[in-house]
Design a protein around this nucleic acid. Structure first.
Length: 765
DNA sequence: TCTATGGTGATTTTT
DNA sequence: TCACCATAGA
């Protein structure tokens, strides 16, 4: 096989794996490679079947299997590295995989393609921009850019953006693209739907005109391209004889279509995933892809990895018990031979401050036993919950790191600078034009821009061309024309000045010549300083940017189909890999993050906080069954992060959206077998016991001294009751003792109400 | 063109 | 409650 040719030889149908013509000498002995793996892992690594479905439980050595499989393909099966395509969801995962392969092989993995779906799609579109119907200088829109474009479309259609919130419009567009649906496939519907459709169409037109591609578009366009161009598809099928997909449960419809296209013919495919860890249904991930896989690839060998190398058996039993409540499962039970460990600890906090204090206190104790702070993770359902923990950690002078938040390439000043650079690459790129045409302010006002947009829309041309036309035709007031012409000249001159310079100097020049540097220098306070620093950091990033490795997509000897400028590669890198949220990773910090972002990580000590119904499971997910099951998987993900110690906390009261709310312990807590749990309740007031008399309102059993006259029957939370005025309802909550005992009842007609039990004439319904 | 103010609405995240 | 946005006014 000659890797240098575009099309490689004849494709002889192969029954199983294509093991012919070893590229590498088979340098590694099979036994070496399989050593230290358990039976299931071995089976997956060395399977000779064409299609492999690996159901990899949490902590079961999933990455290990993937990496060893690749090594096995390279060193035992003799597959050429450029014949292997490994796909992940995040850049981090792709980087880790590559690093571990190189570690295992003891050398560079060379031309092996390991990347994200989006990264790979982007490469293909760069190489085949013509066939894909894109301009050569097409630019990637991130979610923020996309919203801006949508806002502009809303304005141009004179639609009320409170009736069509840009967020909702982008959700509509993205979820349709994720499902592979173009506007043409969406005819009909009610007037509101039709309006959304119209927005989708107009948005597409705007993108096409400007040469913009959003994240979903990268994938959809690639799939459409491969689906329509049989020759191209055939080329890539021959190129990638072995495809491996990580986190397969997170694939959406288009991603799966992409995989199916490439893995057609006789190509080998291995997908690794865990249906129990599917937590991204809300962004289009389709668990069903796992179920479909064996049908789409007949003869699939399914391997289950159930032995866990991370947690104590107690933690696993608890997690298994929780996830068993889900109905839509392939079924899998984690086990370990590492011993039982200690029981889970459940803490009923007074309120969120008590919860935070409890967590911090326990971390302190743990750290005092000469553990690292970085071994501790505080997990919560929503980002807003981090604040209280941050305050408590700050107070305790304990270093911490919050995951999430703005990342480097998402910062305003960075995006401003990138917008100038994008305009250098592509003048028609309206999103960037819009962003910086008057930034820093250069006297181009709303009126002028309205004229520009009007003309652009009327003639279906870019903002750049519309501006040029208005300036040339002298249709603007002199002042406006001068200002606008000034901007056009600025960009043109910038391009000339920058030509031939090293990338970092190009970036630096753009920052200076645009006036952004001066503008941010004038901004007072720490904020301005930080922004200036970030601009400098951008120049540094450009200096360190290695387009070779970032864009090394051609296999040995095969030239890239198109020459891509360093700048273009850098801009794509900025869009596809937004960088880290926070620096100072090296410091030993307590780790704070959402349950979503903790997937894939592990910690000796884990706190799952805010375990209250309504918060977790989140109110908005409780209403439908599928949503609840996804929340339960999220709970499972959280629990299985813990190696040694797992704490679950809930607050009896919590300040939420400005008002004090009373919460019930999460239903997930009740799904954990009592014998695995140790309750910590140092508090006097015990209103909602978790296990003893499950759900019974304790307080009602002990009327306050002196009022021995009245003893209402115990009322269970969740019980159906009837009120003479309000009708039927469900008991949600309770507080107080004896004569003060009150219950909260959610009445079907009248809504939720607090009633003093002594006076309200409640009956069992 | 910048700042103040009021209305709104509030999961989860990567690319 | 609080943070974000849009718009109005100086």
């Amino acid at each position: 096989m000659n890797p240098g040719s575009w099309f490689c030889g004849a494709d002889a149908a192969t029954p199983a794996l294509a093991l012919a013509e070893p590229y590498h000498p088979r340098t590694m002995d099979v036994t070496d490679l399989l050593e230290g793996l358990n039976d299931a892992q071995r089976e997956a690594v060395s399977a000779q079947d064409r299609a492999l479905l690996v159901l990899a439980g949490a902590g079961s050595g999933k990455t290990r299997v993937l990496v060893h499989r690749i090594a096995w393909l390279l060193r035992v099966a003799g597959i050429a590295p450029w014949s292997i395509l490994a796909v992940t969801f995040t850049n981090k995962a792709a980087g880790e995989m590559r690093a571990r392969i190189e570690q295992l092989l003891g050398g560079p993995a060379g031309t092996l393609w390991a990347g994200t779906f989006h990264g790979i799609a982007h490469r293909l579109l760069r190489m085949h921009w013509k066939e894909a119907g894109l301009p050569q200088g097409f630019q990637i829109l991130d979610s923020e850019d996309q919203q801006r474009v949508i806002k502009r479309v809303l304005k141009s259609l004179e639609l009320d953006d409170s009736r069509y919130p840009p967020k909702q419009v982008s959700w509509f567009i993205n979820s349709n693209k994720d499902e592979g649906r173009r506007p043409a496939a969406l005819a009909g519907g009610d007037p509101a739907q039709r309006q959304m459709l119209r927005l989708y169409e107009e948005y597409e037109k705007a993108c096409q005109r400007a040469g913009n591609v959003d994240f979903a578009e990268l994938l959809l366009r690639t799939v459409e391209l491969l689906g329509r161009d049989a020759q191209l598809l055939e080329h890539y099928r021959r190129r990638f004889r072995h495809i491996l997909v990580d986190e397969f449960q997170d694939t959406n419809a288009v991603q799966y279509a992409f995989i199916r296209l490439l893995a057609g013919g006789s190509n080998g495919i291995m997908v690794v995933g865990d249906d129990d860890q599917s937590i991204y249904g809300w962004r289009g991930a389709r668990i069903e892809n796992i179920l479909r896989f064996p049908n789409d690839f007949p003869g699939t060998r399914t391997v289950r990895l159930e032995q866990n190398y991370r947690s104590t058996n107690t933690i696993l039993k608890a997690a298994n018990a929780v996830i068993e409540n889900n109905s839509e499962r392939l079924g899998k039970t984690l086990w370990t031979d590492r011993g039982e460990g200690e029981p889970l600890k459940v803490y009923a906090a007074y309120n969120e401050h008590d919860e935070a204090q409890f967590v911090v206190e326990n971390i302190r104790r743990f750290v005092d036993q000469s553990h690292a702070r970085a071994e501790c993770a505080i997990l919560y359902r929503s980002n807003a919950q981090s604040r209280v923990f941050e305050e408590a950690l700050l107070h305790a002078r304990m270093p911490y790191r919050v995951y999430g938040g703005l990342r480097f390439y998402e910062r305003q000043e960075i995006k401003d600078s990138l917008a100038y650079l994008k305009l250098l690459e592509n003048r028609d790129e309206d999103a960037s034009f819009d962003r910086v045409v008057n930034l820093p302010t250069r006297g181009i006002g709303q009126r002028t821009l309205d004229d520009v947009r009007g003309l652009a829309r009327a003639q279906s041309i870019s903002l750049w061309n519309a501006s040029r036309a208005l300036v040339d035709e002298k249709k603007l007031p002199v002042r406006a024309a001068t200002a606008l012409a000034g901007f056009l000249t600025l960009i043109d001159e910038m391009e000339t000045a920058v030509r031939g310079l090293p990338l970092s100097e190009q970036v630096d020049h753009a920052i200076q010549a645009s006036g952004l540097a001066d503008m941010y220098a004038r901004e007072k306070g720490e904020r301005g300083e930080a922004r200036l620093e970030n601009l400098q950091e951008l120049v540094n990033a450009a200096r360190g940017f290695d387009s070779e490795s970032a864009f090394a997509m051609a296999p040995e000897g095969e030239a890239p189909a198109e020459d891509i400028s360093e700048l273009a590669a850098f801009l794509a890198h900025a869009a596809l890999e937004a960088g880290e949220g926070q620096a100072e990773e090296w410091e030993d910090c307590v780790q704070l993050m959402t349950l979503h972002s903790v997937k894939g990580l592990e910690f000796p000590l884990v706190f799952m906080c805010g375990m209250e119904d309504g918060l977790f499971p989140h109110q908005r997910s409780v209403e439908d069954g599928r949503g609840l099951e996804e929340e339960r998987r999220l709970c499972y993900v959280g629990m299985t992060r813990a190696m040694q110690h797992l704490y679950l906390c809930y607050a009896e009261t919590r300040r939420l959206y400005g008002s004090e709310t009373i919460g019930m312990p999460s239903r997930f807590l009740r799904e954990i077998p009592t014998e695995l749990v140790e309750e910590i309740r140092p508090r006097v007031q015990v209103t909602r016991p978790l296990y003893s008399d499950r759900g019974t309102v304790n307080a009602l059993r002990h009327p306050s001294a002196g009022s021995g006259l009245y003893e209402p029957p115990a009322i269970k939370l969740g019980a159906r009751v009837k009120h003479p005025v309000f009708g039927e309802g469900t008991v949600l909550n309770s507080e107080g003792q004896g004569a003060q005992a009150r219950v909260q009842v959610n009445f079907e007609k009248a809504g939720a109400k607090w009633l003093v039990l002594q006076f309200a004439k409640l009956e069992q319904a």
